[in-house]
Amino acid sequence: MTDPARRPWSRTVTAQDAALALAVTVPDVFFYATPLAPEVNGRDQLLLTAFALPEVVALTFRRRWPTAVFAVVWAAAVGAALLSLDSDFGFTPFFGLLIALYSVARLGARPVALTALVLTGLPVALGIWDPIATGAVRPDRQTALVISGIAFYLPITAVAWGAGRWIRSAAVAAERDRRELALARRAVRNERVQIARELHDIVANAVAVIVMRADTARSTAPTDPGRLAATLGDIEELGRNAMAELRRMLRLLRTADVPVADGAGRRGLADLGLLLDDARRAGILIDLEVHGHPARLDDSVDLTAYRLVQEAVTNIIKHSGPGSHAAVRIRWSEVLALEVVDDGAGRRPEAPRELSTGHGLLGLAERIALFGGELTASPYLSGFRVTATLPLSPPPATAG
């Protein structure tokens, strides 16, 4: 179905082509024939109209059906030339054929354009031969007529065909450049999304935990100086780890030929112990449950699984706070199933708004969808639950 927004443009182009058809056919009639000469009878005028009218109608639709238009115009030109050889009709049109040849060279495939170029030679030859066959030229002038005819028809035919092919090549190259630019922009956009995810996972989560630990240190400092020292040590370690990952990320960004996902923090489920220890030091009572036989994961899937647990645990620290009970459950089967659930029973009923970027779960959903997995995050009893399923290896398109 035609796009309604394009219909006015289509009507304008058709009107332009109709005007061009008239502008070409009228010179064809008056240059290659003498419709108003006294010796031209009514029959010849009707024949002239019968050959000129199809040319006008066909050229009006030259952009829509270039090959069919060339066939109609070519047939009219050949028919008129053959009739002129057998009678005193005298009409060998060519200008309309030039426009049809240009159109099929511009819009048609190369084999079709080459065929049209070869076929154009027939009406050209008939047009050159017509004055010789009808005796309009003396024998001693026939050779000069053939040479002058070739010198006239050959260049303008070659120019019309060559211009069509050149413009087609330029249009194809421009379209290819537009596609490549669109692909480059899409690649840059995807890379920026990956960078945003990694920065969130590396910086935002670490900073959120550091702020929580600092808040705990401030509240316990007057009553428990020993715990204050341990808390400050945890904060220092969290900061060092975040800086190490950030340095690795920055080195990666300076390596233009390596995708972000290929080296942005080689973390995996094997590193969950350190992550959960940080949560426990923040006052979260958290357990790890593993069911089934662990399978070897692709690095990208392993990192995605780790980031999911990291984001869910960080949200527990921010939104539930110390005293919450939580569990991380990993189930191995045909797919990897992950669940992080808490009871919301901590001593922090409302997390500071500035600690949330609003992109954590969104980034997780994008990561998991990239591998064909599913993510669910919703309130659960008095707490919150995050579940996800991941294939044990990424699909080929993602791996590529």
Rank of each mutant, 00 (worst) to 15 (best):
R213N: 04
P225D: 08
A170F: 06
E55F: 00
T220I: 15
A221P: 02
S219M: 06
D262L: 13
N41V: 06
N205C: 15
T157H: 04
M243H: 11
G108T: 12
W129G: 08
D88Y: 12
A80V: 04
A351M: 02
L107A: 14
V40G: 00
S300I: 09
A19K: 03
V26E: 07
A305V: 03
A244S: 07
P139R: 10
A158V: 13
A33T: 15
L181P: 02
A68T: 09
D44Q: 13
P131W: 04
V258Y: 07
V188H: 14
G226C: 07
I368W: 01
S84N: 05
D177T: 12
E237S: 06
L101W: 01
H293C: 08
A171W: 03
R213V: 10
L181Y: 05
W9E: 15
L232V: 05
A23M: 13
R62C: 12
L308R: 02
V104M: 09
F371K: 11
H200C: 01
I202R: 00
R329L: 11
V137D: 00
I156S: 08
V258I: 10
G363E: 08
G292E: 03
R179C: 02
T157E: 00
L390F: 02
I167F: 10
R178S: 08
P4W: 11
V258S: 06
G233D: 12
R6C: 10
G265A: 07
D28A: 12
F31N: 11
R331N: 11
A109M: 02
R247H: 09
L22E: 00
A160V: 03
L53T: 13
P322V: 10
I286F: 07
D342F: 03
L101I: 10
T314A: 13
V137M: 08
L392F: 06
V56N: 07
R296H: 12
S324T: 14
A37C: 02
E175L: 12
A270R: 08
V146W: 03
P66K: 03
R192D: 14
V172Q: 03
R367W: 12
E236S: 06
E334R: 11
G239H: 02
A71Q: 00
A52L: 03
R353Y: 04
A206R: 08
D44G: 00
L181S: 12
L114Y: 05
P322N: 04
A109L: 07
A19L: 12
P93D: 03
L47A: 11
I147T: 15
R186G: 14
T134G: 11
V209N: 01
P395A: 00
W332V: 03
F384E: 02
V112S: 15
A52E: 06
L274H: 00
N41F: 03
E180K: 08
